[in-house]
């Protein structure tokens, strides 16, 4: 998830990884990476079948806080949420399954 201000400057970035964490040689607390050393599961953080997974992110708008007052520097934010399959653990070889872009605008004024 990436958030940018109205000028396109990145103001937030968060990543969640969904995958099983295989146990190295079926012992201890270390993850095994090579297929030849995987022999257990430490935990499974993959997407389980037919069960909803919810994520929430709270992204602050650029603002200054002084003398008890808030000066909002930008009322617009664009968030891009992308679900990628990364077979080798890097974005370069990743395959985008879903990508959603949303623009968020704060109301001006108010009490």
């Amino acid at each position: 998830m990436t958030a940018k201000d109205s000028k396109g400057k990145e103001i937030a970035k968060h990543t969640r990884i969904y995958m099983p964490i295989p146990q190295q040689l079926g012992r201890g607390d270390k993850m095994g990476r090579g297929p030849y050393e995987k022999s257990g599961i430490i935990r499974d953080n993959g997407l389980p079948p037919h069960k909803p997974v919810h994520e929430q992110f709270e992204i602050p708008f650029p603002a200054e806080f002084k003398d008890g007052k808030t000066n909002i520097l930008d009322y617009d934010m664009t968030v891009e949420i992308e679900l990628m399959y990364m077979p080798f653990g890097d974005k370069e070889s990743g395959i985008t399954w879903h990508k959603v872009t949303k623009k968020v605008t704060l109301e001006k004024g108010g009490v």
């Binding site: 958030a3 994520e55 709270e58 968030v79």
Partner: peptide
């Protein structure tokens, strides 16, 4: 203190017959 922010909610459901990914 007034804090302007955006809430992003993502809902995913795996429709496959197995966990994604596996390994």
């Amino acid at each position: 203190k007034m804090i302007p922010q955006t809430l992003v909610k993502v809902d995913m459901t795996n429709r496959a017959g197995h966990s994604i990914p596996d390994g």
